[in-house]
Design a protein around this nucleic acid. Structure first.
Length: 560
DNA sequence: CATGTCACG
DNA sequence: ACGTACGTGACATGA
């Protein structure tokens, strides 16, 4: 509809172009406006400041303009400055940091079905709104940047991680992923049949029909009609019908087992096999998610519309959904993921000799932990011991309690405590690191990743002990989860820039926290695989090697 | 729009 | 006595 900009705080301009309400004045054609601006927008030496520039970059690219010189993004400045202080949309930032109330789009255009489109807004109104956006963005930059410059680690996170990542994410979003809608359609029909059967079975056991997808109706059947024991309550005090409850009830009663199967399949159908085909872009024939760079407090990305970071994998049925993510004719998918990256980061941070040695020797770390905790040789570790050790390792990353471990492993609390005690005896460095991290969090009110990204913990000294303990768990977890996020972001920048500067027919199409997925011409698979592994492994120099495993295949499941 | 549930790392 | 593992996003239900 138009372009707004500002070069000096307090002054801004709007060039209207596409407004077409009754009586709208004649305007410059957008193609002409952009042609005139093209040389500035594409000049890498003319620095650009914006709010969520990934979006602007993409819009401009639709008009054949490659936005260069993306130097500062106020959304990301805010996120690096304080990832949880506020939401990072411009209206909130203006309110929080400039004490300025912006005109919201709703105030201008109304809301609901009667809301006006932007091209229906009076040029005077639109002009004020759009110019204010530009002005406020510039003022926000002038607020954030001097403060970020004062904290070198934050400046570095912004300049070497978040800003260079913007075009990379834009590339991935625009590349999109190819999905076989036909295959998903067949899967949907099959799931539908199985759900109908399960429904019948449930009605038979219950003696009447009810909506299996309604926790409320289900609660009546289970706890009032069938009088099954209440194992857990939801936060509102109603009896819970969650998976773990059903699992326990299933030991003694027939209906919960049917419900568990129903829920699992219904989730796959409603969220994935039915919906993903609808997300395929008509023009490109591919699925284009949006990656959000300023949502997760720890530094991770999130994926939305659709979320491609929670595509099923754990069940056989789930893997069939991954099989629908395919490579086009002549291409292959590569899925490269970091092996145990958070535990490796824990080894690095804690400097624990046993943990460092385990990774240096390339041991199966859960097996090694089991050997230590249960006092046996590596060769004598049973699968049960390994399972327990794995739960302990994950628990440590999450800042677990004996209670949590006991629940996870379905063992007594005392036994769980013994496991933990034994672990800390064998890995004293880890215990020291955990204690130091908690103390530091209390002292300074935030924790940091290896790269200096901060996570503030407003509840770390709260009177409410639950809040405080929650903040302590976050304090333990955030440096590991956040450092892993920093590392893969650096790897993405390295991989994307390498591919762009090469003649390789290969592109990034997805990121799933510790995994990158690429679509590569068949003839170049080995070259790209080697290059990706090298760049992911070299994204950071830790005291332990960063192991990357990369598989290939015609679909995402096969590539794992 | 809140709630409960469940998919992923 | 109570609540207790970290981080997300999407769906169906029902008020």
């Amino acid at each position: 509809m138009g372009v707004s900009f500002a070069v000096e705080a307090g002054k801004a301009a709007y060039i209207p172009s596409g407004h077409d309400y009754m009586g709208a004045p004649e305007q410059l054609p957008i193609e002409w406006v952009l042609q005139e601006l093209k040389s500035i927008l594409e000049d890498a030496d003319k620095i650009k400041i914006g709010q969520n520039l990934k979006y602007d970059r993409s819009v401009l690219l639709n008009y054949g303009i490659e936005l260069r010189g993306i130097k500062f993004d106020t959304m990301l400045e805010s996120y690096v400055w304080n990832s949880i202080g506020s939401r990072h949309n411009m209206d909130a930032l203006a309110q929080n940091y400039l004490d300025y109330k912006t005109v919201t789009f709703e105030e201008l255009a109304g809301k609901g079905v009667k809301q006006l489109a932007f091209n229906q807004l009076k040029i005077e109104d639109a002009g004020h709104y759009a110019a204010e956006d530009a002005d406020i963005t510039l003022r926000l930059h002038e607020f954030f940047w001097p403060q970020l410059e004062n904290i070198p680690s934050l400046k570095k996170v912004l300049e070497t991680i978040e800003m260079p990542l913007v075009p990379v994410l834009s590339h991935i979003e625009r590349n999109g992923a190819l999905v076989d809608a036909n295959l998903l359609g067949k899967h949907s029909i099959e799931l539908g049949d199985r759900l109908t059967q399960l429904e019948r079975k449930a009605y038979e056991i219950a003696g009447k029909e009810f909506n299996l997808s309604s926790p409320k109706q289900l609660g009546v059947i289970l706890f009032e009609q069938q009088k099954l024991p209440i194992i857990k309550k939801t936060p509102t005090g109603t009896p819970s019908t969650a998976e773990e409850v059903l699992q326990e009830l299933a030991l003694d009663y027939p209906l919960p087992k049917v419900l568990m199967e129903y829920r699992g399949l219904a989730k796959l159908k409603s969220t994935y096999t039915d919906k993903l085909p609808l997300e395929i872009n008509k023009r490109t024939g591919r699925i284009h998610t949006s990656y959000h760079q300023a949502v997760a407090a720890t530094g991770r990305l999130s994926s939305q519309d659709p979320n491609l970071q929670n595509i099923p994998i754990k069940s056989e049925e789930g893997r069939r959904i991954r099989q629908a993510f395919i490579a086009p004719q002549g291409y292959t998918l590569i899925a490269a993921d970091y092996s145990q990256i958070e535990l490796r980061i824990m080894a690095h941070l804690s400097d624990d000799p046993s943990l460092l040695t385990a990774f240096e020797l390339g041991l199966d770390v859960h097996r090694a932990t089991a050997a230590e905790v249960f006092g046996v040789n590596l060769d004598s570790v049973t699968s049960e011991m390994r399972r327990s050790a794995k739960a302990i390792n994950f628990g440590l990353i999450y800042g677990m309690s004996a209670f949590g471990l006991a629940k996870q492993l379905r063992i007594g609390r005392n036994e769980a405590q013994q496991y933990i005690d034994r672990y800390f005896e064998r890995y004293p460095g880890v215990q020291r690191y955990m204690n130091e991290t908690r103390a530091l969090a209390h002292e300074q009110g935030f924790v940091e990743t290896i790269f200096g990204r901060r996570l503030y913990l407003p509840d770390i000294n709260a009177k409410n002990k639950n809040l405080q303990m929650g903040a302590e768990r976050t304090a333990i977890n955030a440096p590991m989860q956040g450092t892993a996020a920093d590392i893969i972001k650096l790897a993405m920048i390295g991989v994307d820039n390498w591919l762009l500067g090469s003649n390789l027919d290969a592109k990034l199409i997805m990121q799933v926290h510790d995994e990158l997925v690429l679509e590569v011409a068949e003839s170049e698979v080995e070259q790209v695989r080697t290059g990706v592994i090298a760049r992911m492994s070299a994204a950071a120099q830790l005291k332990v090697p960063l192991l990357v495993e990369a598989g290939t295949g015609k679909n995402w499941d096969e590539a794992h």
